[in-house]
Structure formats: structure tokens, C-alpha cells
Design a protein around this nucleic acid. Structure first.
Length: 292
DNA sequence: AACTATATCAACCGCCTTCGA
DNA sequence: ATCGAAGGCGGTTGATATAGT
């Protein structure tokens, strides 16, 4: 048995909002806030369901909503975040102040996806941020149209990115950056969801669009960070790191590196360096480095 | 001018997670 | 531990606008 949509309840209005309804909703929220969306329409005198009210407020009426065309910087940010996060629109929206997940989703499906397809046809050059580590770059040829259609990035099509339900809880979100901070594409902070942490900073310096400059990263890259005062996340399941590489690093070394003030893993380069460093200190063989 | 195809975007739907009883 | 209510999210739809013929 299929649950009836909440708006199907008697008397609930659907469809586009009128200016009068908007005004009622704005006035009510300005006076009373929105502690309970379900009760709000009745209290405000609106013939709408709570969900509809919430959506209208969040996507359209909220004072800090930025309307109008996306700047090229915003589009580039969406590109890069989508590459890393997949279709996690709310997480992407969290990095674009004033933009809503719905808006970003629409923009993606309308023209950004087309642009991505254009990049797909461009030849890919290997990019290696550090000579000592060969980052695995995925050729654009390996990205199927269906993957693009589904909005899944190359990393998420490896089967490593768990669904939302599998993502472990994280520490509270750090403060959001200002729009000027976000507009700088060379320093993109990643938040995986509103509730998750910004515990891993990625410096996407000088990156080309799309997947080619990213190593394969599974979701645990962002979410497996141990809770500690050190806000840096450790890529303990970093896919670019061979198993034998990881297995030779004693946990004590990892624990040591995780202690505050060691400054590990502020970006992808540091992530690679982190493993390199631990591996060497653990007596790893230099030759293995070239394998990754 | 009329019609059709395509693009855009606001809004809805259903599922999942969280939280409190 | 269980259950239901509520909030939140991503996918999808449908109305409208615009471009093309």
C-alpha cells in the first residue's frame, strides 16, 4: 500500500505559490520562526502542507537566497564538488552561500551536465601533483554516458561510495565560508552534508575540470576521520594507497600522526605525503612507491 | 502567425534518517 | 527496543518560456 502524499489531505492546495501566500508565509516565519513545519500552515492560515511551506521558504523566500545566473566561479565550484561528492546537492549547496540544493540541481541537469559531456570528449593528460606518487587518473573514456546521466561521478561509480544511509555520523559542521571564500576555486572546502564535518580541506590547486586530477577516493576518505581535536581527516581507506602499503604502517604511527599539531592531511597532496611518510618510517620499500 | 521542440525551474513525491515518546 | 512523527534529501514532473521551423 502506497502512502498518500501529505498534500493529498483534504483542502491542501498544490501548485505554484501566489504572492499572497508568500507574504503570509514570510510574515508568519518572521514573527514566529519555523519550529514545526507540519503545524505551521494551520497556524499561519495557509492551505498548504508543511512540506510545501518548508520547500517554498528554503528554496525561494528565505532572505539570504541569491537569485539570478550562476557566476562562472560558482559553476566551476559545482563541477568540482560534484566530481567529488556526486549528486549530494545539499552538500554542494552548503558550499555556495545563497544557493539552494534545488537550484544547483536544476543548473546541473540543464547546462552543466552538457558542459561535462563536452569535457568528456577532450583528451586526458595524466596529472601528478607530486612526483613521488603516481596518482591514478581516470580517463574520461572510462566515464559512461549512463554514469553521467545518473549524475554519479567517476569516484562514485567505482562502487565505493556508500549511500547516504551508510555514511557515519560526524562532528558538527564548521562555520560556513563567506561567498568570497567560496568563490576562490583554488581552495575548496568540502562538506559532505549539513550535519557532517568539514574535516578535510582539499586544495584543488590548478586543477582541470572534472575527474582527471582526482585519485579514486571512496566516501570513507571524508567520513572515516577519527573524532579528535585535530580537525584534519585521515584518508585511512584512501584508494590510491595499495593494501600492502597500508598494512605495513603500524597503527601506532597512525595514532601519532593523528595527534593535534602534526598538521597532516590538509589536502590531497598531504594525504599522499601522509601515507608516504608513514610507509617509509615503517620501513617500507622505496620501490613500492612507484606502484602508486 | 502558428506550430513544434527544447530548455528552464518551481514544486511535488517518496524514501530515508533522526528524534522523542 | 520499538514506533510514529517530522524534517531533509534526491529524483522527477509539469507548467511556462524561448527558440527554431
Amino acid at each position: 500500500m502506497v502512502r498518500a502524499p501529505c498534500c493529498d489531505k483534504m483542502g491542501m492546495k498544490k501548485g505554484p505559490w501566489t504572492p499572497e501566500e508568500d507574504q503570509i508565509l514570510i510574515s508568519y516565519i518572521q514573527k514566529n520562526g519555523h519550529a514545526n513545519w507540519r503545524a505551521l500552515p494551520k497556524q499561519a492560515g495557509l492551505l498548504r502542507c508543511g512540506k510545501s511551506c518548508r520547500l517554498r521558504w528554503v528554496n525561494y523566500l528565505k532572505p539570504d537566497i541569491k537569485r539570478g545566473n550562476f557566476t562562472s566561479e560558482e559553476e566551476e565550484t559545482i563541477f568540482k564538488l560534484h566530481e567529488m561528492l556526486g549528486n549530494r546537492w545539499s552538500a554542494i549547496a552548503a558550499k555556495l552561500p545563497g544557493r539552494t540544493d534545488n537550484e544547483i540541481k536544476n543548473v546541473w541537469h540543464t547546462h552543466l551536465k552538457k558542459r561535462l559531456k563536452q569535457y568528456q570528449t577532450k583528451p586526458v593528460t595524466k596529472h601528478n601533483p607530486k612526483s613521488k606518487s603516481k596518482i591514478k587518473c581516470e580517463s574520461s573514456d572510462n566515464i559512461s554516458t549512463s554514469q553521467l546521466e545518473s549524475g554519479h561521478s567517476s569516484s562514485s561509480t567505482t562502487g565505493n561510495i556508500p549511500s547516504r544511509t551508510e555514511i557515519p555520523e560526524q562532528t558538527p559542521m564548521s562555520p560556513q565560508p563567506s561567498s568570497s571564500e567560496v568563490s576562490s576555486i583554488t581552495d575548496v572546502n568540502i562538506a559532505t552534508t549539513d550535519r557532517e564535518v568539514n574535516n578535510m580541506d582539499i586544495k584543488a590547486e590548478n586543477m582541470e575540470y572534472s575527474w582527471e586530477c582526482f585519485p579514486e577516493i571512496d566516501e570513507s576518505f571524508w567520513s572515516d576521520a577519527p573524532s579528535s581535536d585535530n580537525s584534519s581527516a585521515l584518508p585511512l581507506n584512501f584508494e590510491g594507497v595499495p593494501d600492502e602499503f597500508q598494512s605495513q604502517v603500524p597503527s601506532s604511527s597512525i595514532d601519532h600522526a593523528m595527534e593535534p599539531d602534526h598538521g597532516y592531511v590538509q589536502n590531497l597532496d598531504d594525504a599522499m605525503e601522509f601515507w608516504y611518510d608513514l610507509f617509509i618510517r615503517a620501513g617500507g620499500e622505496q620501490d613500492l612507491i612507484t606502484e602508486f
